[in-house]
């Protein structure tokens, strides 16, 4: 634990971007504390926030992984909805007449979610690595295809009326405090953090993201690495879909359609370089927290339209980019002059 604190400290010193995000969160929390303390600082409010963000937070983690390799995954929402719809059908079939589920149902749908997500990710990964379609196009097309599958399966209607047990379970609070959605997110975030910073695979995808050709010449199995990355992203999206299924208590082809751009925005805001090779999960999680807090905080001002949040998101993203631009340019000119 001690070393972790030290790490956070050195992050804070070394990484301007992370620092800026933390400062922004603190400033916002202070502002809210001064103006709407009671309406914001309650356990219930934090629980609500914690239950809301995991669905798109998971998808953002997927995009982050792909962006580290120099790609992107625009099919996450498609994968999430496809997973949710297929599992909704399964749950519907398993729901008994008195509205209960057999005990194996919940683990089964989660295993299935992982399998579906991984399969969809495999498809993306093959397109990107073997067919060599630029990731932005491949995943855009695949996303449209997955959405198409959802539409074809449901005719655009919502799938619901399955046992409420599932939704209730996911919407539970462990010990009355800790939302299950958050737990799922944390588990996945820890897994990804672990993969990125503690495993060989993590190092390899950073290297691959900064120079694909050099990665090939260094003997990395680049195709396999890419495929695995997109599979991981697919799994994240699949789990995100499972949380959506619980939060809406139904599944539909067009749920969460704004999440694609929103997640890309989060990931970039979190300091991940869209060209690949750079980015930390801590930044992305901070970006998720910042945006969730902004949105919830704004909602505490009833006379301000909640739609302003979109304005603020975009503004924050551009602001951070501009700040980065000026700080980097300063660094760059100094370096240049020294050379």
């Amino acid at each position: 634990m001690k070393t972790n604190f030290k790490n956070i400290g050195s992050y804070f010193k070394k990484d301007q971007h992370i620092k800026r995000l933390i400062v922004m969160i603190i400033v916002w929390m202070l502002f809210i504390a001064l103006t709407k303390f009671n309406k914001f600082y309650s356990l219930l409010n934090f629980q609500t926030m914690a239950a809301q963000f995991p669905e798109f937070g998971l998808m953002a983690l997927g995009i982050m992984l792909c962006m580290i390799t120099g790609g992107i995954d625009l099919s996450i929402v498609g994968i999430a909805n496809m997973t949710a719809i297929l599992n909704a059908f399964l749950l519907l079939a398993l729901t008994s007449e008195n509205g209960s589920l057999p005990p194996y149902a919940i683990p089964l749908v989660f295993v299935l979610a992982i399998v579906i997500g991984a399969a969809a990710g495999l498809f993306n990964g093959l397109l990107v690595s073997k067919v060599k379609i630029p990731a932005i196009l491949a995943t855009m097309g695949a996303g449209e295809l997955f959405r198409g599958v959802c539409m074809a399966l449901t005719n655009g209607n919502a799938v619901s009326k399955f046992s409420r047990t599932y939704s209730q379970l996911i919407n539970n609070k462990i010990g009355g405090i800790f939302p299950v959605q958050l737990l799922i997110f944390i588990i996945m975030a820890v897994v990804i953090w672990f993969i990125l910073s503690k495993t060989v695979f993590g190092t390899k995808i950073y290297m691959l993201g900064s120079n694909l050709k050099a990665a090939k010449y260094s003997g990395l199995k680049t195709d396999k690495l890419l495929i695995k990355t997109y599979m991981l992203s697919g799994i994240c999206a699949g789990l995100g879909g499972m949380i959506m299924l619980a939060n809406y208590n139904s599944a539909r082809a067009d749920y969460g359609s704004v999440y694609t751009l929103q997640c890309v925005l989060i990931v970039v805001l979190g300091g991940v370089n869209p060209l690949g090779g750079k980015g930390k999960i801590s930044g992305v999680i901070l970006a998720i927290i910042l945006l969730r807090m902004l949105e919830t905080g704004i909602n505490r001002f009833p006379h301000i339209s909640s739609y302003y949040i979109s304005l603020i998101w975009g503004g924050v993203l551009i602001l951070i980019m501009v700040l980065n631009y000026f700080s980097e340019n300063k660094k760059f000119t100094i370096k240049n002059k020294a050379a």
Binding site: T203, Y206, M207, S210, N211, K213, A214, A215, Y217, G277, K278
Partner: peptide, 13 residues
């Protein structure tokens, strides 16, 4: 530059 090294990554890696 384009085939041998990962310029934006650490010397160590």
């Amino acid at each position: 530059l384009t085939e041998g090294l990962f310029l934006s990554q650490s010397i160590a890696d």
